[in-house]
Write a protein that binds this DNA or RNA. Structure first.
Lengths: 335, 335
DNA sequence: CGATGTTGAGTTACCCGTAACGTAAAGCTA
DNA sequence: TAGCTTTACGTTACGGGTAACTCAACATCG
């Protein structure tokens, strides 16, 4: 590895026998130079392995970096992996880069991350959820850059918002179960973060069940992460403590698949003995024999839309500040 | 949203009635100022919502940004999600940020990404695989920053390397199947990128099977992405064209689970009628009834190690350039 | 009481590109 | 051929911090 100090434009210019300005013009193909000069400059650029220092450029122009900060809670959650994919496709085609932050559901972590990222003049931010610390809110409001809050729909966002109404999606699923004749219905999910979207889903779900005369709080099991095994284990816990539960709504499909495996391993038939429903229409569903009742959400599209809003704002276009990406209940064979 | 131009240190200093330098000293807690001055400066910092411009600091110091570029092929692959998680935990605790690039297995995309990221003076890079374009290699070599190539073990890395010998892991799985008495063994995987790790696994696997007198090339099905459904569909294709196949090795566990579902949906018993093996010990396995034979790889640890190498190098510590993270064949109930 | 430190500042220069402006030489026009 | 335009550069200044230096006021000491 070469311990080369970085080659600067001045060195290239000196080597080529021209001024910095001329070299700069050649590199930006700005015109106003002769062909022979161009050749000279480019030759030395190549020979010295010069790479422009964009930090200096952006700094001089007083402009932002091409970085867009993207904060999500967790990569283990496939839904967010898909959202990121959507964001990256859009941003990448416009020369922007993602600076990824994993908040791990901790507002303090998010605040620190926001402060660090903002101090590097990002072109924009995409944040998951709407629960930020007061100091974070102040910094964000002061930043003057476009910000998109995603996932949770928010009628009064900091700036812009793309998401869905998690409460309603939970309510709809609850009513669906009630209408199908289930009364003793439960919920298996995770328990970190008080203001997150999954919590809203649970609230809506509980409300619908209450409206139907049931009570979810008797049939509740909250674990740590929303993945396969916590779904399996949570279902075991719930069935052991409340064997009369008739149907379970899971925080997401991966948990539901874990729960489904537990039920069948225990000899329970789905849906005859117990009904199961997931959320998110995650990839695993495409291969599971027993078609899971789920809530379809267009995660990739959500990411793309968020990135589009950001890009449009940067280019000065008028943008609808809030977009509802919606959801769709997909009845399966497990209810 | 305030259209505030960014507040600069000079404005804070002016408001506080001191020089820029004094304000700077207070903010960096460098000493050499009185308590009353400190109060004045901090009051105005707060009032104006001043956030230091780290780009200017780094630029002036000629130093790098705190950004570490991380390039992976794809977020849909849970193995890489885990690697990223490991990287983020280590980097985050040292104040570094990840700039994520998704190469989507296209060397040209990677080259463009590398050029952009390098022009922003990252503190280091983590790249997946060892196949970079010639121009990318030149830029990397010239950059003078620490670089870790991950995933594929590489005896002569650009700089540093953490990974495993995919060829060997494939060979070991192949020999395992042969020793268990399977002869007509197949492979279901993906087909993009000629020099990627999965390809190495297939090579090693093929070699082992050939050593055992078989021929994988007769029983091969390559799809697009290494996820559940392509595993399901690929297995269907393979079984339709070569019904006499006795065992299948999948590129990863998610594909294997898809294949397993297909087999049982067709009434095949696993392993009595057909043997199945996966790779990676991915989360889904924890809930699948039929314990899948797989290859365990410590993905999170791999990411952590890569980040550690980077951080150590940045702090001038001597670092072992190449680390083999290893793998472990976990015999299950599907072979 | 002058010499010497110490404290708490301010001043200057610099990092690396680029905007804005200046200019010499060549080309073109009337 | 004077006068104007164009071409192909060069020069200067700037941005937001900070290193390195300078400097004035006051304290301390022999």
């Amino acid at each position: 590895m070469s311990k080369n100090k970085k080659v600067s434009l001045a060195e290239v210019a000196r080597a080529a026998g021209v001024s910095k300005m001329t070299a700069s013009r050649v590199l930006r193909n700005e015109g106003g130079f002769s062909e022979s000069t161009r050749q000279k400059v480019l030759t030395h650029v190549d020979r010295l392995g010069y790479l422009p220092n964009r930090m200096a450029t952006a700094f001089a122009a007083g402009s932002t970096s091409p970085f867009v900060g993207v904060s999500i809670p967790d990569l283990g959650n496939e839904a967010f992996a898909q959202v990121l994919d959507g964001i990256d496709r859009k941003l990448g085609s416009f020369g922007h880069q993602m600076v990824l932050g994993l908040s791990r559901q901790l507002p303090d972590e998010e605040e620190r991350w926001i402060e660090t990222v903002l101090s590097w003049q990002p072109a924009g931010l995409i944040l998951t959820g709407r629960a930020h610390s007061p100091r974070a809110n102040a910094m964000l409001r002061n930043s003057g850059i476009p910000i998109v809050e995603i996932w949770d729909l928010n009628s009064s966002p900091l700036d812009m918002c793309v998401g869905l109404n998690h409460y309603d999606s939970g309510y709809q699923m609850g009513r669906f179960l009630i209408e199908r004749g289930y009364h003793r219905v439960g919920y298996v999910g995770t328990d970190h973060g008080v203001a997150n979207a999954a919590r809203s889903r649970l609230s809506g779900f509980s409300e619908a069940v209450r409206d139907g005369g049931g009570d979810v709080s008797k049939y509740l099991c909250l674990n740590d992460v929303p993945s396969f095994y916590p779904g399996f284990y949570g279902t075991e816990q719930l069935l052991n403590s409340q064997p009369d539960v008739q149907a379970i709504f899971f925080q997401n499909d991966n948990m539901a698949v874990g729960g489904h495996e537990y039920c069948t391993s225990r000899g329970l038939r789905v849906p005859e003995d117990i009904g199961l429903a997931g959320w998110g229409d995650l990839p695993i569903l495409s291969v599971i024999k027993n078609r899971l009742t789920t809530m379809k959400v267009r995660h990739v599209r959500l990411g793309q839309l968020a990135a589009e809003k950001l890009l449009s704002t940067m280019h000065g276009a008028a943008v609808q500040p809030v977009s509802d990406i919606g959801f769709l209940l997909v009845p399966g064979a497990t209810i």
